[in-house]
Amino acid sequence: MTSDFLRGHLENLLLAVLVDEPGHGYALLQRISARSGGDLVVPEGSLYPALQRLERAGLVASTWAAEGGRRRRIYRLSSAGRRRVRTAADEWKTFAAAVDRVMGGTEIRGMA
């Protein structure tokens, strides 16, 4: 899936993969990739500005921590972030179902 398509959804995806446990930037990226079966390719350079936007909105908090002998910035979901994930998930289900109703049965004649 293209980076442009993903850009508007990156923040909600990051919140979704933080629900179960906190993590550093690269770990979050790997969770998105693993959960999507490799179909979602996050523009990696946009990851940290997106995480800072989420911090600005009070949806995540972060701290430095030592992990495997390395100093990592660990992100965790705030209670506001948890509420946002629930809302975003509901909105997405409604949106995806509506788009599917419009596009799901479409057949383009003359194309395999």
């Binding site: 690269y26 990851l47 940290y48 990592r72 910035r73």
Partner: peptide
């Protein structure tokens, strides 16, 4: 620092 760690992992 975050970019450095990210690039090391990648």
């Amino acid at each position: 620092a975050e970019c450095r760690e990210h690039l090391l992992d990648a």
